[in-house]
Amino acid sequence: MTTRVQHRATEVISRLLAYLVMAFALFITIFPIYWLAVNSFKLDIDIFAVPPVWFEFSPTLKHYDAAFIGQPFLIYALNSLIIAVTTTIVSLVFGTMAGYALARFDYPGRWRYQISFWILSTRMMPPIVTIIPLFIFFNFFGLLNTKLAVVVAYTAFNLPFVTWMMKSYFQDLPPELEEAAMVDGDTRWGAFLHVALPLARPGLAATAIFSLILAWNEFLLALILTQTERAMTLPVGISGRVTQYTTHWGEISAAGFLASVPIIIFALIVQRHLVRGLSFGAVKG
């Protein structure tokens, strides 16, 4: 009897501990978002209040007004959206085809490995190393301060990632499915389109969201390649509110909070695919 009570007690305690750990982890992840959201609705005086104001303040939309009406943050957001979506589409189209080619075609000798490694190796240096050459390059073509330049640069950095992700998804698909399609009368392209691609959908979703987040959040290249609202993205725009004399925390919070909303919504939508996509390699078939 005693042992059973003891057993129950340890069970309760271990449960309690697990919840505590989870609560702590949740707090660490949620708190910055909460603080960002709350600050965006506070008056400046409440933002800087010591001790901090947690819940009780009179909410205001003044910072939203300042950022999106007073400052061109709507345009930055639009730029960000166009650039992120275009980058994702272009990287996905080319990266998926490249990944498929690397997963399926025959290469002489060790060329499959060589090409794959070469593609990956473009990610091995820090992007900042390429900034001056990229700047000169885009300047030469007169593309500085255009969305096109940012898309090209982002696509270049995203492609290796997409290629490798998709390569591994295609390698997990049994090749007989495409072989069956080809014997059934399809071309290799048709088999890719009708069979391999629909089956790689979870992989596509996972890769798309990573690519989208990467492009949406990127700061460094955008900072160098864009100067005005013609092409400037949200992260660069937001950082611009740190001025010589003051930091507009309210506007930064307002813009930052709204900037994170689309990604959160998108992540929620593709969440199901994402989970399946990430575990795809583990459970075959």
């Binding site: 014997v183 399809d186 078939g285």
Partner: peptide, 20 residues
């Protein structure tokens, strides 16, 4: 000659049914 022009049909050991 590409498989599609050979006019053959094949049953695979794994059946290779299109899962989707």
């Amino acid at each position: 000659v590409l498989p599609k022009y050979r006019d053959v049909a094949m049953v695979f050991q794994s059946y290779a049914l299109y899962p989707h």
